[in-house]
Amino acid sequence: MNIKALRLPLTKEELQSLNAGEIVSLSGACYTARDAAHKRICDALKNGGPLPFDLDGACIYYCGPAPARDGEIIGSCGPTTSARMDDYAPTLLECGVAVMIGKGRRSDAVTKATADAGAVYLAAVGGAGALIKNRVKACALHAYPDLGCEAVYKLDLQNLELLVASDTKGVCALR
């Protein structure tokens, strides 16, 4: 299988070149956020509070990592179910989020909002946390430390293989 190597942040052209169903190998910086962090980010947008990171062009990974062991940077860190973030995703896409990584289908509204924003949704293999841990070269607690595993971590990915689940044309590859 032909695997396209990409480095974050992705350009508009790179985003547009991706087709649903193809596998890519992704490297570069992304931020973890799941249910609780999404709620806070959207509250901050509504109330004009500070944002944990620049949303424009950002890559968000729906993930709540297992704790790191002594001497390691992160624990198992596979994707969580993306659909739970569907209520928040259109708002974040409007703010420029370019890449979302997770697992499972999105609502039709999110797939459309993703395409309208020129963004993509990439699927990591669910239940592959131990393997994905080895694709993370740096991890730093970035915001909302009180949320524990639901805090925002900045990760430096190296060659994480993902399937393009929905693309800028609005095509979805998931059943």
Partner: peptide, 12 residues
């Protein structure tokens, strides 16, 4: 990998 390195097979 999980068995070999004693990592959690899934973070959940």
């Amino acid at each position: 990998i999980a068995v070999r390195s004693r990592d959690f097979a899934c973070q959940d």
